[in-house]
Design a protein around this nucleic acid. Sequence first.
DNA 1: CAGAAACGGGG
DNA 2: GTGTACGTTTCTG
Length: 594
Amino acid sequence: MEREVVILDIDYISYEDKPVIRLFSKDGDKNVILIDDSFVPYLYVYSNDPDECIDDLDELLDNVKIEKLNKKDFQIEKTFIKVTFTHPQELSKHRDEIRDLDSVVQIREFDIPFYRRYLMDRDVIPMTKVKASGEKLDSFSALDSEKHDVEIIKLDKALQRVDENFNDFRILSFDLEVRNPHGMPDSQEDEIIMIGVASNFGINQVISTKKNSPERDDFVCQVSSEKEMIQTFADIIKENNVDIIVGYNSDNFDFPYLIDRAKINDVDLDLGMDGSDIRFIKRGFTNAASMKGLIHVDLYLVMRRYMTLERYTLERVYYELFGEEKIDVPGERIWEFWDNGGEELDNLFDYSLDDVVSTLKIAEQTLPLNLELTRIIGQPLFDVSRMATGQQAEWFLVKQAYFDEEVVPNKQGSNFTDRANAEDNEGGFVLEPDKGLHENLVQFDFRSLYPSIIISKNISPDVLVEDDVEDSGEYNVSPEHDLKFMKTPQGFIPSVIDKILQERFRIKREMKACDDPTEKKALDVQQQAIKRLANTMYGIYGFPRFRWYSFECAKAITSWGRQYIKYAMKESEKYGFKAIYADTDGFYAKYVKK
DNA sequence: CAGAAACGGGG
DNA sequence: GTGTACGTTTCTG
């Protein structure tokens, strides 16, 4: 059978000792899980003596496929040994043994999560529409498709891209209010008193065990107990085919709290498309709440990247975006409002609704950009919404490297990281502002200074000349450290930036020619997403934990940057201007005389 | 003063 | 989940 579906999310499970990719998708109101058991994990081995190394690998490993092939490493064609395993856990189990073999110089691409590898290699792009073809299964593994109203399709050929932009996602925001009379809420002690829900499909309500004046009847939904409150909330999500659930600090507060209270009240929170429970994904020191096929976006994390503020409270972020004050009830007084009832209880209902409505508004404002980023980077929205911008750029580059047949660089070891951390790059040129009131000012800005320098000077680790060679015109030489970059061929990262900037200009042209305001807006969001990504690429050189870390490249970029801004300031003096303030890629100048 | 620990958001 | 935050402020010895 064939179906057009939108890919929402991805994971893999083990079935008969084989990895099976599951693509959680939707076709309108119908949940569809696409199954693909044809993908297996691999890594690359580099050896000075490939044939001897293959013998060693043969001896060491069972159930693997070993093949010699040519791949590029920093643009140099090299022979690598590709080792293909039957299961990701097998790869992880044997990784260190392979690395330790005498004939092995290094292993590569051994730390790329299986589902991400799948998305890149098969060019499957989350949050896009695809045509899927395969056999419909009645059930698969532990999953009961009757019970969970989900269709399972076992893919029999590659997904086909459908050239149509899909943006009609069903979004729901939620927020808990808790009765915490003794300081911060304690999930073992303090009950949930309200669950606010707002959506872009008509449901806006506050579920609560209390009710007060009839004026709040249109949005307060009274239930008999906390248990029923949680159950009602779970039913709303399950019955309304929600694609994206958003909260504010929900990774850290709402979901953990809800799960604790659900446990105490013996309620199933089986919100996953396959009937599975909410799970916590370990992410360094914090957790992320995740459900299969229901994308949870914590807007707090998104907003920290989206705008620069001194604080990121919901109130502050909302004010910044919409210029309106939110209804406020101080956290430490919520229990009093609840206990006192009457007008105060009504205020609390209003506050709860205001919180979720604001959260939804913020989601509608910021998700389009994140959806575009998701599609450009080619990784799940759940992941992308939690990645630092540098990581977004890195995963984008990993995917580009695959298309260029490049083997991606390994991340630096931790001891190197410490050393590299100590290295301090000078950064952009800053001229402290000349204090006072100035007249006749002009402003000067370089357009995308760092991306432009990377492209024009071809700054990339694969074309950096390490040896002490004489320059006879074939290199770009940095102004301060005499770092030499070959003029040809184009470096990997300059070529990627070049490509995406060209794509940005193409979109801008399309925008100009476009008459439909909705389409125009969508194109604008696309080009903004690309601009963000291009501007982040410079950062990729400066952070030791990233694969393309290169202190030399970072130094070269900023040194050229300083040269250009100083040159521009000097040139302006010839026309009677005097710079009164400068920072990195622009300056303000005062007209003094002709 | 350097290195360790806490913090953010949420109620 | 084939990778384990992060940058800044405050505390402590």
